[in-house]
Design a protein around this nucleic acid. Sequence first.
RNA 1: GGGGCUGUAGCUCAGCUGGUUAGAGUGCCGGUCUGUCACACCGGAGGUCGCGGGUUCGAGCCCCGUCAGCCCCGCCA
Length: 587
Amino acid sequence: MSATSRRTHRCGELRAQHVGQRVRLGGWVHRQRDLGGIVFLDLRDRAGIVQVAIGPDAPEHVRSVAGGLTSETVVELEGEVAARPANMKNADLPTGDVEVRATKLAVVGRAVTPAIPVARGKGEELPAEELRLKYRHLDLRRPEMQANLILRHRLLQRARKALSDLGFLEIETPVLTKPTPEGARDYLVPSRVNPGEFYALPQSPQIYKQLLMVAGLDRYFQLARCFRDEDLRNDRQPEFTQIDIEASFVQMDDVLDYVETVLVALWDEAGHQVGRPFPRITWHEAMERYGTDKPDLRYDLPIADWTAQVQPLGVPFVQAALKDGARVRGLAVKGGSALSRKDVDQLAEAAKQLGGAGLAWVKRQGEQVSGSVGKHFTTTVLGTLGVGDGDAALLTVGPDRVTSPVLDRVRREVIRRLAPAPKAVHAFCWVVDFPLFEPDPETGKPVFAHHPFTSPRPEDRARLDGDPYACRALHYDAVYNGNELGSGSIRITDRDLQIKIFHKLGLTDEEWQQRFGFLIDGLGAGAPPHGGFAIGFDRVVMLLAGAGSLRDVIAFPKTTTARALFEGAPAPANPADLKALHIKVER
RNA sequence: GGGGCUGUAGCUCAGCUGGUUAGAGUGCCGGUCUGUCACACCGGAGGUCGCGGGUUCGAGCCCCGUCAGCCCCGCCA
């Protein structure tokens, strides 16, 4: 498999079984150790590193070439695989039982001194990320980065196979598509032959995959590149890959089953056994117990409503804020008295940044009760809150929209600081029954929580007009260890309902016809019940690779200002091109 | 749009309260060396302290601005 007309093996493949064979190799000089009478090369390719020995008995020209080699030079060589003497094996190297005694050696790719090192010393930090991105061809030579990309490849193949085995058809959809004024900002592409008009790059193939269902293709998937012109994070890139699926004649359970099959296959590919089915939790319960729609279920430590127990105590911090539906909510932290005063202050500071009333705390050690509001509490009251000896209570007060994010943040910080043993290593769950609408933070009016093609739960459809916020959606998220892996929904297939929803969003007939007319036409042409899902593939690879950033699992990523440092994109267009595109640039 | 961290030799970093000639490791160049695996040892070169301005007798260090990378909030239907 590895052999070509120029080589017989990859460097990293050689083992004791190859001893005695004549091999030809090509690779990069990882390191060179010139001991005078003998030169050792660590020769590297994508399979790994093997030691090449050029001793006093090697041909003269081989010795002279070997002595002059510098890092990252590409060489080809021929030699015999030899067993290393017992005391000279290298247990840290998979190839460490053998070495290659070179009889021919040639430089085939001269290398200038690399701007950033590929071979690093023990304990030496990685080069600055800016340099790693600028000299990406060097950074990608590092075995860690190659391992990430190799894992990515295997996961892609496994996803393809899993979905293909389930009868899904891989179908490509356009990259030059139509601007969608909803949602994220679009990347626009000017049209030369249609002056003043623009394509958009797809934020997702959403409408296309629904049209494929209308067309009767029944089960579709795509490893789809998506584009969103929004500000970036360590887990957000402007272009990213989704495992995008859609299926017809399904209900939610069918879709969850498909997605579980894929996720379990991906985790299996990475060497992890995962149980099925994934537990389900409603959105409401997730917000109540964890303060977030992507709870980390590896740990206990649920949020509790302590209003009834704490209100009678007359704590000033609480009394001032306890009005208009505000509640006292908190965390009973097992072993929380181990949190230092500094820890607690930092938690309170983090809480304050999220707009909370602040964070009050009580520690219990034996009969001693202390803390910022400790004097109002007795061990008996703490007992009713589940706060035992050595524990702590962390509480805040206010409306849920404030206390939920505060306690989510506090919960994650407490887990980070106390590092309790997780209940499970791989905690998947489904979050279901999301609300269909949420209040617009600026206008206060209902806007769609997800995309406008998400079906309401049939039993909630009657609430669309009277009580839209109580209307639940057939929308579901897959969550893993506190990370959102993806989301999906059962779609609206009733043309009239879809139009009604557009009206609810404030779109006039003219507006929705212009933006989504082709979807509505589809729904009017005989649409099967259908639904789907999209898995954020880059994020999956990042989690399975144990990488700290999406940039470490994408070969050529962008910076946080959406720049590509290696080739220097984006760049000004030349005037002739702009003219052809009918574009004038203001600066 | 807002907040924070970082920026000193090719790379990774140190640099005290503002004080003489800005250091270390590694890499690079030259040399010695027959079993190393971060080889060892000897010698050498290498600096716009991100950039611009200011304060000061004096700035790598203080102040203002700016650029870049990273992290967070907003944003991401």
